[in-house]
Design a protein around this nucleic acid. Structure first.
Length: 287
DNA sequence: GCCCAGGGAATCG
DNA sequence: CGATTCCATGGG
């Protein structure tokens, strides 16, 4: 990877296995808009960023070199070797080879823990289009104005509100879950900043002390915001595609799927999950 | 109008 | 551990 500065832009070349559309639209994050083909605007870590992809050239703007180095390169996981990851996962596995071939430019993001947690609390029993809308409602109502967009609100700002106000954002039955998460983090009962150096099982146990956070939501936070790429979240789509493509269509429990995935995909299970999720949900293979 | 969605809690076996 | 039911909401 190589990059240069041009005014308020950073031009990046020499990244393989990166597609901005596939990465943002693979269901791992929700605060982005498609401006045109291969051209997106996103909000993350209290900053607005535009990304334009032209061939193997990526323009990040507005963006300074230090910000690219310290924030966005890590956010988009640009320093990981996806060629190696895809080689290992594809070896002797035609199913995974097909899923990877469907969207070989997916990168697993490194998101903010708190935003990721609230986003996937909202995701439960919900559609992606509505998840995006509800999150946007919350940002507009409670988030700081960062110029052209609103930042994701802090735990303190959501801990301060009451359930009737939050329900106006159309969160439905998830409102009480969001408030419990905000309260426990704001009071320091759950130390999300300590997650960086904590054991995966300790993070999982800590998160599941929140009312409304179970296996799936905690696994998504571990994978998308704590960099635990060996974690394999199982939702309805992953269950569907795994059942069909790896279990011959016979009924199988999440416990069995998880055991199988950890055995087969090992330390790259999280990457495998994302390729399979996106392939299953949008690749027309969900029968 | 009906179905279902990147689930989880409560309850029962 | 596994199966069932309920939860708010609205896009398709």
């Amino acid at each position: 990877m190589h990059y240069k500065q041009e005014g308020n832009q950073i031009i990046v070349t020499g990244i393989d296995s990166f597609d901005i559309g596939e990465t943002l639209e693979s269901g791992q994050c929700f605060r982005f808009t498609k401006l045109e083909e291969n051209h997106y605007r996103l909000v993350a870590h209290s900053k607005v960023l535009n990304v334009l992809q032209e061939g193997d050239s990526f323009t990040f703007y507005p963006c300074a070199p230090d910000e690219f180095e310290s924030l966005w390169a890590h956010y988009f996981d640009l320093n990981s070797d996806y060629g190696e990851i895809k080689r290992v996962l594809s070896a002797n596995d035609p199913v995974m080879e097909e899923a990877i071939g469907y969207a070989s430019g997916i990168r697993l993001l490194n998101q903010d823990v708190w935003e990721c947690l609230v986003s996937f609390i909202i995701s439960q029993n919900n559609h992606i289009a509505r998840i995006k809308q509800i999150i946007e409602n919350i940002c507009v109502k409670y988030g700081e104005d960062i110029g052209g967009a609103c930042a994701f609100p802090t735990p303190a700002s959501l801990a301060r509100t009451d359930i009737d106000e939050l329900l106006l954002c159309r969160t439905g039955f998830r409102a009480k879950y969001i408030l419990d998460a905000a309260a426990k983090i704001d009071r320091g009962e759950i130390d999300i900043f300590g997650f960086k150096n904590a054991a995966t099982d300790d993070i999982r146990e800590s998160l599941q002390n929140i009312h409304g956070v179970g296996t799936k939501v905690s696994d998504c936070v571990l994978l998308f915001a704590c960099g635990r790429r060996d974690v394999f979240p199982i939702d309805v789509w992953v269950k569907r595609v795994m059942t069909k493509l790896y279990f011959g269509g016979e009924a199988v429990t999440n416990t069995k799927i998880r055991e199988y995935a950890y055995e087969r995909f090992s330390r790259y299970a999280g990457f495998a999950q994302q390729y399979l999720f996106h392939y299953g949900r949008t690749g027309g293979k969900q029968g």
